[in-house]
Design a protein around this nucleic acid. Structure first.
Length: 273
DNA sequence: ATGGTGGCACCGCCA
């Protein structure tokens, strides 16, 4: 079966409900993963999103900060809302996509929001950076604990807040000391990938030499002209689903929409048996 | 070298 998956750090779902609507009507994702919804479960605009064509909704929210939600036209079963680093933050949600596969065991979709990590890339003086490194290590240990299941079919999407490759930032050299592209972060993200042989779906479709961004700071006046972007948002699969994503697109057009998020959506079309 | 922007909660925090 074929379905379209999208991930978008929306930076407040209540403020940008009209933009979600506009995006959904234009691109028709079957499953939409949002990060930074910035509201508690009770304040999530569930009814409005149902009306947009997503009868199946799972939310992991918290007041004011963070929070993820997975919306779907196809049925799913909530698997887990994991407190990945034991801080009580709402940064993960996984569902089993019962509706997309004829096989006995449906693929599991993880929706993750990795801590941004603050400004100073030193874990000794910046607790937020310490948290980010710890969070990535916790992800690594968790996925390593699931290893050995070669047929494990999993998809992982979200704002991972790390741009791993030199071509994932506008200037590799200038960003080596900037949080999101420092060696401690990129090395840890690589170890997360290795912990379950995760496949970087976006880089399956765009060569590693080519620049590819999903985020442009609000502080750049003309984001497209200066193009000081970073690839912070990701779509991964386990090897059992390598090749299942037959198309991928970064929707940078949304970055021009009024009062938009600083992140843009990433879409992948899957064909899963 | 610096400061540039944005959301939520609430008088600052986080991104």
């Amino acid at each position: 079966m074929r379905f379209r998956l999208a991930t978008w750090n929306i930076n407040s779902v209540r403020l940008r409900l009209d933009l979600v609507s506009r995006f959904v009507k234009a691109h028709r994702p079957d499953v939409l993963c949002l990060q930074e919804i910035k509201c508690v479960d009770d304040k999530f605009p569930e009814l409005e999103l149902r009306t947009l064509g997503f009868p199946h909704i799972a939310v992991a929210g918290q007041k004011g900060y963070h929070g993820v939600a997975t919306l779907s036209r196809l049925p799913f079963t909530l698997e887990e809302r994991r407190d990945i680093c034991g801080r009580g933050h709402a940064r993960h949600l996984s569902v089993a996509l019962d509706g997309v596969s004829g096989q006995a065991k449906p693929p599991v979709l993880h929706n993750i929001y990795v801590p941004a990590g603050g400004d100073v890339p030193d874990p000794e003086v910046n607790p937020k950076f310490r948290h980010k490194l710890d969070f990535l290590e916790a992800m690594e240990a968790w996925f390593a604990s699931m290893r050995g299941k070669a047929k494990n079919r999993m998809i992982l999407v979200g704002d991972l807040n790390v741009a791993p490759l030199p071509s994932d930032v506008w200037s590799h050299k200038q960003l080596l000391k900037v949080v999101s592209h420092t060696p401690p972060e990129t090395e840890r993200l690589t170890r997360v990938m290795e912990s379950h042989d995760w496949v970087d779906v976006m880089r399956r479709h765009v060569p590693a030499e080519e620049k590819l961004f999903t985020w442009w700071s609000y502080r750049n006046r003309d984001w497209r002209a200066s193009n000081r972007g970073r690839r912070l948002d990701h779509i991964w699969t386990t090897p059992a689903l390598d090749g299942a994503a037959v198309a991928m697109k970064v929707l940078d057009e949304t970055r021009d929409w009024p009062r938009t998020s600083d992140h843009v959506p990433v879409i992948a079309d899957f064909e899963i048996e």
